[in-house]
Computed example of a mutant assay.
Amino acid sequence: MYGFQDLLQFTFAGITSGAIYALIALGFCVVHNTIGIVNFAQVDFVSLGGMFLFSGLFWSGLPMVAALPCAVAAVTVVGIVVERLGVRPSRSQNHLVLIFLTIGISIILRGGMKLIWGKNRMAVPSLAGDEPLRIAGAAILPQAVAILVITAVAIGLLVFFFHGTRLGLAMRAVASNPTAASVVGLSVGRVKAASFALAGGLGGLAGVLVTPITTLSYDVGVLLGLKGFAAAILGGFGSFPGAVIGGVMLGLLESLSAGYWSSAYKDVAAFVVLLLVLFVRPKGLLGK
């Protein structure tokens, strides 16, 4: 029999995973809203975040407080490079062609990570201490608290960026009507590069946050990225609030199904519920 303490424990775990999925889902939504495509290189931005964090800690000898923002910044730069050298030169603006192009870029990024960091599993230390905190009898690791706090701050900064900065307002304008935005003088190319940069930063942040609680490898972002993609679909692809809600819901579904059913089927349960939601509401919970 499971009691309230166990339910609370499963809930903490689900919200922690959901925060990671939400960050990845937001990265998908940023590029989709600006360019209208699904950027499958997003899954590798997650892996790169962990890889750059590992390099900063063990190759450069940086402390965690410096290695983390440096890793996120490095993936942000990779996002810009992907847009400038991988997507922008395409002679076709067909969305399907561009989607397949991001799949090819994803394969290239994964191959590059395999060459640079190898195929061996790696690990990095926790962002905070290892002594669990007790809340109503349930244990929560400081790493989980750090994930929730940093994710909440990142979402708050994202809201401010889109509503309180010129570049953020320009991105919203291009997302709404790229032709009209171009006519009034907005640099659509700059906005597209900024969308990939922001997607890279969000993916890199998800990578550095999840790496201390999982093993690190060149393909660790694939499954996490697919779950982030599922969270974006569940919430309504392109909806930022939907991405956050979808991520948290997916994390809770996984955790509760693992706790009350079996950990072997947690992925299955989450995606089955996702399919059921889409059968009833194909555009997702908050999709328009």
Rank of each mutant, 00 (worst) to 15 (best):
F4C: 12
I37D: 00
V244Q: 06
A144Y: 03
L85S: 07
S195C: 12
F52D: 07
L274D: 00
V43Q: 12
Y2N: 14
G185Y: 00
G36D: 09
G27P: 09
V124A: 15
V78A: 04
V248S: 00
K192V: 07
Y260K: 09
W261A: 12
F271N: 02
P69T: 09
G3C: 02
T16H: 08
G111R: 00
G238T: 00
F12A: 01
Q42K: 01
P69A: 14
L216C: 05
L216Y: 05
F279A: 10
L234F: 09
A74C: 06
P132E: 15
V222Y: 12
H32K: 13
P241L: 08
S106P: 04
S90K: 05
P63D: 13
S60F: 13
K192A: 10
F12I: 02
T16W: 09
L223Y: 08
L274T: 00
L209S: 05
G56N: 06
S60L: 13
G251H: 00
E254P: 02
P241R: 11
L253C: 06
L252H: 07
R91D: 01
F10Q: 13
G3P: 02
R91E: 05
S92Y: 06
I15K: 04
M1T: 14
V77W: 05
G49H: 14
S92D: 08
P282D: 03
L148C: 04
G236D: 03
L26R: 11
A138H: 08
A170K: 03
V87S: 07
T76S: 09
G246Y: 02
G112Y: 07
S106E: 07
A269K: 13
G112E: 04
M113T: 11
G156S: 14
T214K: 10
L115C: 00
G164E: 10
S90L: 15
K266N: 10
M51K: 05
I150V: 13
P63S: 12
P282S: 07
Q42T: 03
D130R: 15
L169H: 10
G14H: 00
S55A: 14
V65F: 13
G238S: 04
V82G: 05
F52W: 12
F45G: 11
L157D: 07
I105F: 11
K192R: 12
F28C: 04
A139L: 11
G112V: 03
V208S: 11
A144R: 03
V244D: 04
T16M: 13
Q143E: 10
S255Y: 00
S217F: 08
F100Y: 08
F40C: 01
